[in-house]
Structures are given as C-alpha cells and as structure tokens.
Simulated scan of single mutants.
Amino acid sequence: MKNTVLHKADTRGHADHGWLNAYHSFSFASWYNPDRVQFGMLRVLNDDTIAAGMGFGTHPHDNMEIITIPLEGDLAHKDSMGNAATIKNGDVQVMSAGTGIQHSEFNPNHDQRTKLLQIWVFPKYRNVTPRYQQITLNPEDRKNKLQQILSPTSEDEGVWIYQDAWFHLAEFDAGVSTNYTIKKEGNGLYVFVLSGTVTIDEQELSTRDGLGVWDFDSLTIKASTDAQFLLMEIPMQQ
C-alpha cells in the first residue's frame, strides 16, 4: 500500500545569516526536527540563496554523495582534489566525498545573488576514493517531459553517484501529465516543486513543497499550472 509524507514549504527549517538565506527540508545545522531527519537515503535538501560575493569557506565532508543544482546565478567551487570550476544554472555537479574532501563554494558575482539546491545522499559504499563530476544540461530536454540528470552508473544519462538513485528535472506546461514508474524495487520517490502547482495522484503541491512516496510501483504527475519540479528516486533502506 502506498505511503506518503508531505512537507509543506512553510514547515521547513529556515536560517537567515544575511549572506546566506537557507531553507532546510530535513534537519540541518542548528535546525533539528526528529520527524525530519531524512527520507530513505536522502539526508539533506537545502534551498540556498547566497548574496553577491559571499560563500562557504573551506570545510570537510566524507562518506556522502553531494549534488549541487544551481537555479540562478553562478557558484565557484574549489576542492582538495584540485578541482576549480564555476557551475551555473543548467549545470549539475556531484562530489563523492568518500574517504574525505575539503571544498569551498562562493558566489563569484558582485552584482547578483546565487540560488541553488544542495542535496546529500548516503552512499552505497563507504570510504570510496573521492571523485568530482560536472555536466551541463540541455533545458529543452525537460520541456513537458522528465529529463534524467542523475543515475547509479556512468553509462546512463546525467551525473552518477554511488547509490541506486535516479533524479529527473521537469518543466511542464499547465495541464501536462506523465506517469513515473519506480526503477528499483524498494525505492521511494521524493518530489520537490521548484515553481507552480503539481498534483501527485490526488495530492496537490505548491512551490517549494515536498512529497515523499514509497511502497508504490507507479504514480501520476500532473501540472495544474506551468510548473518546474525535481524528482528524486532514492533507496528507502541501505
């Protein structure tokens, strides 16, 4: 029998540091909600706005798959693996932190903000060799269809991570609908609405709402208005 958990936008954790305005779908930093620690192997979904010229200083990570999706503006990245890159709207970046990395992220522009999603997924394997990957997507490939942006293998579309997960971005016109069929038995789906109104089976979601669904085979997604959304299929157990 299908199970769901609804996370309305205004129930998220919120921290405004001036240079950083952050919303947390799951417990993060000083915001802790025992009912909102993770969804399956999805540990963090942060909706961040970084002021012009500001950013995160060098800090460590290990044993986590870290996915960054810029929504507006640019994000400059440097890490202990020797990578120095700028990612922008239309790109997807992934780091497998594995045995440990250090990195910094900042908004290199002095005249505009940067908006991004940062997502953490628990890996399938511990202590892998750290890795970095960045790709540029074609936004036309998500117009009224699901664009795969992440998978468990380098042979598939999008970036890849050490987990049996599949992510899709979509930009639907009002009235467009599609079905989503789970790719691996035992996985769940977390839907995050970037803009507009979307109905998942009978549940209506608005901008920045999240819905977790598990114990199902397929479901219907319909855009009630013009809408953009992210689908994250995630193992519910390791």
Rank of each mutant, 00 (worst) to 15 (best):
L117K: 04
H110Y: 10
L211I: 10
V44E: 02
L71N: 02
P139K: 06
A15V: 15
T68F: 06
K222W: 00
K184P: 00
I149C: 05
Y162H: 14
T11W: 11
V5H: 14
K145M: 11
S151N: 08
L20G: 12
A85V: 14
I135K: 07
I182W: 02
G158S: 11
T4E: 12
H17K: 07
T153R: 14
K8W: 06
S25V: 11
H7Q: 08
L230W: 11
I66A: 06
S195T: 06
G55Y: 10
N179M: 00
K184G: 01
T68E: 04
D156V: 07
V5N: 08
F122I: 05
N83Q: 14
D173R: 03
P34N: 06
T181V: 09
L189M: 11
R12F: 13
K115P: 01
I101P: 01
D79C: 09
E171F: 00
L169A: 09
A52T: 02
I221F: 09
K2F: 01
V213E: 00
V176S: 03
V121S: 04
K124N: 13
P152E: 02
D10I: 03
W120F: 08
G55T: 12
V176I: 12
G53F: 13
S177V: 01
G212W: 07
S177D: 12
H168L: 01
E72S: 14
G73K: 00
N179A: 10
L71V: 00
K143M: 08
R126F: 10
T178V: 12
Y32P: 04
G158C: 05
A15N: 12
P130D: 08
D111C: 06
L75C: 02
V128M: 05
T114R: 00
L20P: 06
N127A: 12
F192K: 04
S30G: 03
D62W: 02
K183W: 04
S27C: 03
A22K: 04
L146P: 07
I50K: 05
K222E: 09
L194E: 08
M41L: 15
L117W: 14
L230P: 02
Y190P: 10
D156L: 15
A15F: 13
M41E: 14
M232K: 01
N144Q: 11
V44M: 08
Q238E: 07
P123F: 04
T4M: 03
G188L: 08
T4V: 15
R126Q: 13
P60R: 13
R113N: 11
E204I: 14
T11E: 10
N89R: 15
E157W: 04
H59E: 13
V128W: 00
F56H: 11
K88C: 00
N3V: 09
M95W: 05
V176D: 03
F106M: 10
Q163I: 04
Y180C: 04
E185C: 04
F192Q: 12
Y32T: 10
L116G: 03
A9K: 13
V191C: 09
S27N: 03
K88S: 14
W214C: 13
